[in-house]
Design a protein around this nucleic acid. Sequence first.
RNA 1: GCGCCCAUAGCUCAAUGGAUAGAGCAACAGACUUCUAAUCUGUAGGUUGCAGGUUCGAGUCCUGCUGGGCGCACCA
Length: 551
Amino acid sequence: MTPSELSQILLEKTQQWLTENGHTEIQLEEIALERPKSRDHGDWATTIALKIAGSIGTNPRDLGGKLAELFSGIPGVEEASVAGPGFINIRLDASNLGAVAKQIVDAGSDYGTLQINSSKRINVEYVSANPTGPMHIGHARWAALGDSIARVLEASGADVTTEFYINDAGKQMDLFGESILAATLGEDAPEGGYKGEYVTDLANRIKNAGTDLAALPREEAIIAARESGYALQLGDLQKVLGDFRARFDVWFSERTLHAKDASGNSKISEAVETLREQGHVFEEDGATWVRTTDFGDDKDRVITRGNGIYTYFAADAAYYLDKKARGYSEKIYLLGADHHGYVHRLKAIAGAAGDDPNTDLSCIVGQLVTLRGSRLSKRAGNIVEMKDAIDDIGVDSLRYWLARYPADSPIDLDADTLTSNSNENPVFYVQYAHARTNAVARKAQESGIDGSLFSPETLNHETENALLGELQQYPLIVEIAAKWREPHRIARYLEQLAGAYHRWYDATRVVPSSAEPIESVHHSRLVLNSAAGQVLKNGLNLLGVSAPEKM
RNA sequence: GCGCCCAUAGCUCAAUGGAUAGAGCAACAGACUUCUAAUCUGUAGGUUGCAGGUUCGAGUCCUGCUGGGCGCACCA
């Protein structure tokens, strides 16, 4: 019996009881199960009595006692009892709990995939770094987080499109071109332009590819430098993100928003017109504004400047409308804390476009990565390029490390963590548990242990109960992670699961020592071992981390 | 000045509004002739920044303070 099945039965029983006792006004939607922190409290607990006692005029303890009595009669439930102020603790019988192992092995990689979001088409936009320079460790955080969020949402049943918005239009790109040209000619970078070795590298790569920027007239040279540099830089960026296993289905160029069709319209001009038709646009001081304050922004925003040029905000609006037109029920934006000011503006665009800013759009604002307490900055010379970080500590370690913290928690890295493959990184703990399941399975097979001779009731050791309890919890963790867009919950769960597995491994044996005979319990333990391996693998996969068979 | 985020063990951090707030690291004491010791067992470590409020119940929600991060353009 899975937790969701149990929950469903409890719901029916409770609703039936309410009806029979004249409380038809209460319609329960679900009964939430939670894992009691203390094992003594059983396998599952529900607070339903505490929640509804008030509305039916009884005290939670009495109601809990009545419901517990009812729940005790459910097949597969060994015991249900009321505790404390009104908790109902439920203990499943051993064979029922043990059967979970086989269910997991049978389900394989499908174990932990859900249908709760199966009606949704979700767009996840993340990283979206400017193609004017290399990405740093901060971008790696969004890459790890965004990709894992997409994986978790897919596991929850959603149809997910991942997307990277390329800021390839505007003044920054021109400055980029001028900077490359300056490096080619041995001149200083222009005011506000790009500096650093990578600019010189790009200049050299362009030269080596046979383009002689120095021979071109200045205006042409800037454009050529810009376009060549853009192609190279975007290629680098895609390579690094690909190596990092971050998936992007769509690389969306800002230029496509500016591009004019035969009648002189662009997606941006159409977006402005759309907003104007909806009545959210006004003219003032020679500029065109959107009344974003109607949607909670702290000030109205200019969309077309006095000189007729669109602001960056105009492109944002057009981009949002484009996503909407492509039919996504929800658009997720991952933003760094330094861009959190956009949230109100995006909400305003969504509202002005006729979307519900609270459900059709969600902004995940993450804290920045700091290095030993100091913010990454070029001036301080402590920028760590994403590519170098991957080379130094590996994709698995880096992804896992960056994904195991909530987005709104600042991550403070120190140089040692970055450069040493140390056991401080819990990814090894989890991966080692997975590798161990494989070693045990290999050994068991050689010893003639046969998982098809499975009898669930033999899995009754204390550590087996604990391990089965963890395994059973996995779909619930995926559900929570998907609901809250918090992949770190997967990582924390895996660490807990790995701990339960290691303790089980330590306390029991799948392969009996040579003096002992092979018994029924050993066959059953092989199945439990495989189940643990399967869940570790499924979970690591949601984080984009490999599950090695040997370490 | 206004807005968003954060404050939990010595350090880095967890904790669906639930029961006795948990891990890792660091410290100390143990466990491999037996399936992987990258593991396990034990000890020690806390007024969850401060003050109120809501609730049967608050680290979690609300208000105010203190301290820190980030942002507040007809820049991109």
